[in-house]
Design a protein around this nucleic acid. Sequence first.
DNA 1: AGCCCGTCCTGAGGGC
DNA 2: TGCCCTCAGGACGGGC
Length: 275
Amino acid sequence: MPELPEVETVRKGLLALVQDKTIATVDVYWPKIITNDTAKFQKALQGKVIETIDRRGKYLLFRFSDNLTMVSHLRMEGKYHLDTAVTPIDKHTHVVFNFTDGTQLRYADVRKFGRMTLGLTGFEQSLSGIAALGPEPLSKAFTIAGFTQALKKHHKNIKAVLLDQHTVAGLGNIYCDEVLWLCKIHPLQPADTLTAKEIKALHAAIQIELKTAIAAGGTTIRSYVDASGQQGHFQLQLHVYGREGQPCERCGTIIEKFKVAGRGTHICPKEQQLR
DNA sequence: AGCCCGTCCTGAGGGC
DNA sequence: TGCCCTCAGGACGGGC
């Protein structure tokens, strides 16, 4: 499941593969992936050049010539890769961008949860999802003061707050469990009850964790690969996610798994206690 | 405003 | 072997 480090890894890899390429045509095999009118989407992209690719939270922002931006969210299993027209389209490929040089950018998504939206650059600021997004965790906009203020507004549990993207952008289920373990905070602890010390530790852990995960090319748990088909390596540095039944690396207590906000959640029951 | 829940999807894995 | 059921979950819209 691509979270910020995986999306950033995809962005960098993808940029190296498709920058400056010109789109000839677009094939759409599962129209629900495109939230615009499919025919308009296809027509608008004809002849456009991919100038760069940006990222905001877990969203990829393809910047095209003529002031067009395509917002793309991979959700659970979305993947991009470069291919040639002679390779048969597999059943999980839903959108194909045909370039004028004969190569293709293919979007595959087993679950079909991913979405793409095209508009005039800047439209993404008012797109639901991006408009309400919290600060980028690796930018100066993510301050301890702002983080503290945002946490005070919520009485729901800290894990749900970190997951919902409004307080800070980019964390998903895996990195939430990891940073909470690092800071010894119980995922059900109400956000507005965290101490200043805990908030400071969480703020730091989020940044270190995401930076380290980006450096490792992201985390491959089920199926994540980057734009070149390479797996990430950060799964080797996970402390709690997917480790239920195994001893905590710090204290030896058996890691437990239960549901929080509808998500599988992993904790060390000794070190992460609800207050 | 905040919060919770249903929805979208398919493949993997368990039970019998 | 094969079938059925459950689980995995990010974001969003609707309802309270």
